[in-house]
Simulated scan of single mutants.
Amino acid sequence: MTSPTPARRRGRRAALVGGILALVLLYVVVILLYAAGGRIERAEVSSGGAGDPLVLTLTPASIDGAAGHMTLRIKPGPLGSYSSDQFSMDETVHVLVTGTDGSRTIEYGADEVAATETVTLTLDGFIEQWPFDRYTTETLIVPLREGADGEGVPIPYVLSVDGRVPGWSVQAEAVATDPMVTEDGPVAPLGVQFTVTRAASTVAFGIVLLTLMVIAPVLVLTAAITVYRGRRKIEATMLGWFGAMLFATIPLRNFLPGSPPIGSWVDYVIVLWVIAALIAGLVIFVLAWLRSGPDGVASAQSANDNAHSQDDGSDADAGSDGGGAGGGE
């Protein structure tokens, strides 16, 4: 056997170093993307009107693409001119929130501590397009006090959006509608439009997992075709390895971030063909094993018998040499 030339050894060493550097670079990029992602760009809009406004801070808490829901926390404070102690409202204020599963009204009673409330907004989008799925929703949030005629009258307020949702990229755009004339002057009902996409770190994580899934059938097919062409001997124990690769595909697919449902486009583009390639590799290996037939088994048995006979002959020669030496003494 000829040893590799120095140039070939240097090429292999360079390829190994390059592969290690690529993995380290990929690792650093994914970590940096995760650290930088998920932060919501702060958005703020005022309704106008006289006096100190009521500030409502909106914080997206969680996003469920499969259910099409986004949980939103609404925190009041500062409470503005309609509160003398900044802990409770001087009169009952109802906050109307649209875009939920039906319109919802949050009540801040007089002389009651104004606490954070949670609402669930509905999202428009398709999780089947994971990891490039995109969702939108719009909500109108208006605090109302009871007017002289018993109707709800908007009070001056400010909507502020802030927070962070890990694994998601959320863009908030404040929307102001036509103002309404009130005792506090013109007050415009305010809304917020949310646009939600997967964070870059989540997309990178999913691409890495899908790449690993593609590598598995490539290895299996390479081994199976090599054995079928007779360049490597048949090892029946490799069937267990092929089976393990096949059964590892589904847990790996279910580990994808965001848990895309079965039938997503990623299943048709990648997962289905990964399973098909693994089965093909298993079939090719079994055909190679069957093709070897009894001759392959007989030749293997003959090789084992020859090895045993050579061992017995060596033991006999060693015994005779020992006996001759004893007789010479």
Rank of each mutant, 00 (worst) to 15 (best):
L278I: 10
F247Y: 09
I215V: 15
A244N: 10
A307I: 07
G296E: 01
T182D: 02
V203S: 05
F255K: 03
D178W: 14
N304E: 15
P186L: 04
G281R: 10
Q193F: 06
G296H: 03
V274G: 02
I207V: 14
I262S: 11
V214E: 00
V283A: 07
A277R: 01
V297L: 09
Q310Y: 07
N254V: 11
P260N: 14
L212P: 02
P179F: 01
P251Q: 09
L212S: 02
F285K: 03
D305P: 00
G240A: 09
G281E: 09
D295R: 13
G191F: 07
L219F: 08
F194N: 02
V271I: 15
R291L: 08
G240D: 09
A288W: 00
F194E: 02
T202C: 14
P189F: 12
L272K: 06
D311R: 15
A276E: 07
V274S: 00
G258K: 10
M180V: 13
T211C: 03
E183H: 08
V196S: 00
A216T: 12
T197L: 08
A200D: 07
A204R: 06
G185M: 02
V271R: 00
V274F: 03
G206H: 09
A216R: 09
A298T: 05
A300P: 00
V192T: 06
N306R: 15
P260E: 14
I284K: 06
A224R: 05
I284A: 05
G191L: 10
A216K: 08
G243C: 07
V269K: 12
F242A: 04
L212G: 13
L287D: 07
V271C: 01
V283F: 06
A199L: 13
A244P: 01
G243R: 15
L209K: 12
L282M: 12
Y228H: 14
I275K: 10
D311W: 15
D267G: 06
G185T: 00
A236G: 11
V208Y: 11
W241H: 05
I275Q: 01
S264M: 01
L282S: 11
V220A: 15
R232S: 08
G263D: 03
T249I: 14
L219M: 04
H308W: 12
N304S: 14
V218K: 09
R231M: 05
L212Q: 04
A300R: 06
L219I: 14
L246H: 04
V203H: 04
V283Y: 04
L239I: 07
T195D: 12
A204P: 00
E183L: 13
K233E: 14
I215C: 09
A303C: 10
K233L: 10
V297R: 12
E183W: 13
T195L: 11
L290E: 07
W265T: 08
A244D: 10
R198Q: 03
K233M: 05
V192D: 08
V297A: 09
I284N: 03
I270Q: 03
V271K: 04
M245N: 08
D295P: 00
A224G: 04
A298W: 10
Y268T: 14
A307N: 06
A303N: 10
G206Q: 05
V208M: 11
Q193W: 11
